[in-house]
Design a protein around this nucleic acid. Structure first.
Length: 268
DNA sequence: TCTGACCTGCGA
DNA sequence: TCGCAGGTCAGA
C-alpha cells in the first residue's frame, strides 16, 4: 500500500491524536510481524512509556518512545485504526495499544507484508537514500544520481536506496508530469528533462499529501477516511482513457515486474 | 535482470 | 476461478 504520501498522512494524524500518550497496555496478536524481538520483550520495553513523537523516513513510520524507536513498515496493506469497530478486517489487527487516557490504537495489515522493529538507540536507516521532500534533495544531486546509478528511470525512482518513499503509483504519475517515458534509461535524460522530473517528484508527492494520499482498496487515514488523490491520477489505472495532455490512449505495460501506465504520445 | 514467494481480498 | 494489488526479498 502506502508510499510516502500515505505514510506521511498517517504520521501527521498520529502526531495529532497520540503524541504524549502513555502506553498502558500493548497486545501483540501476530508475533511474526515483530522482526527483531519477542512479543514479551516488546511489551516489557514499552509498557508505561510515553510516545514523544512520530517521525517518517521513506516509507517507514517511527514511534519515538523514551528515546527508543518502534519502527513500522506498512507493506502493501498496513494501516492504523482508532477503534476496532471501525475496522473492516478486525481479524487482521496485529497490534493493539491501550493508553493511560483510555484511547486505543490498532495496527491492521491484511496481507501481512509489513514489519515491526524495535531499536534501543536511534536508527538511521543506512539502507535508505535521499528524502525527496528534504532541502537536501537538490537538482544537482539528483542529476548526479541519474548518471551514477544508470538504470531504467522508473526503477530508479522506486529504488529505496537511491530515493526513499516513491512507489508504483507515484513513479507513474511523476514520469507523466515530466513527459518522460518509463522505458528510458536514467543517464539519457537531457538537462531539461532532469529539471522537469526533479520538479515532478516534489509536486506529485506534495499534492498527494495535501489530498491525504491515494486510496485504491485498503488504505485509510488514522481517522478512517479514504485519501482523495485517486481522483486526480493522470495515468495510474487509466489504461485506455485519453491522455489529459494529448488525447492518445494511456497504455499499460509490465516493466520490472510492475504495472506501468504511460502515454506513448507525450512521454518521450 | 527476472521470477517467484510472501498473504489475503476483491472484482471480472 | 483467475488475475491483480500501493512492497520487498531471495535465488536462479
Amino acid at each position: 500500500m502506502p508510499e510516502l504520501p500515505e505514510v506521511e498522512t498517517i504520521r501527521r494524524q498520529l502526531q495529532q491524536h497520540y503524541r504524549g500518550e502513555q502506553i498502558h497496555r500493548l497486545e501483540v496478536h501476530t508475533p511474526t510481524l515483530l522482526k527483531n524481538l519477542s512479543p514479551e520483550a516488546l511489551v516489557e520495553a514499552v509498557t508505561g512509556k510515553t510516545i514523544q513523537n512520530f517521525r517518517r523516513r521513506g516509507k517507514f513510520l517511527i514511534f519515538e518512545i523514551d528515546h527508543q524507536q518502534l519502527v513500522f513498515h506498512l507493506g502493501m496493506s498496513g494501516i492504523f485504526v482508532q477503534d476496532v469497530h471501525q475496522s473492516r478486517y478486525p481479524r487482521h489487527i496485529h497490534l493493539s495499544f491501550t493508553f493511560r487516557s483510555g484511547k486505543q490504537l490498532h495496527y491492521q495489515d491484511v496481507r501481512k507484508f509489513g514489519g515491526i522493529w524495535w531499536y534501543r538507540t536511534p536508527h538511521h536507516f543506512p539502507e535508505l537514500g535521499m528524502e525527496p521532500l528534504s532541502q537536501n534533495f537538490t537538482l544537482n544531486k539528483f542529476k548526479k544520481l541519474l548518471h551514477l546509478r544508470r538504470m531504467n528511470i522508473k526503477r530508479l525512482l522506486m529504488e529505496q536506496s537511491i530515493i526513499a518513499g516513491i512507489g508504483n503509483i507515484y513513479a507513474n504519475e511523476m514520469l507523466f508530469q515530466a513527459g518522460i517515458s518509463p522505458l528510458r534509461r536514467s543517464d539519457t535524460l537531457s538537462v531539461d528533462e532532469v529539471r522537469r522530473l526533479h520538479r515532478a517528484i516534489q509536486d506529485v508527492l506534495k499534492a498527494a499529501i495535501e489530498r491525504f494520499g491515494t486510496t485504491y482498496s485498503a488504505y485509510r487515514t488514522v481517522e478512517g477516511q479514504s485519501g482523495e488523490n485517486q481522483k486526480f491520477l493522470k495515468v495510474y489505472h487509466q489504461q485506455g482513457q485519453p491522455c489529459p495532455r494529448c488525447g492518445k490512449p494511456i497504455q499499460k505495460i509490465v516493466l520490472n515486474g510492475r504495472s506501468t501506465f504511460y502515454c506513448p504520445g507525450c512521454q518521450k
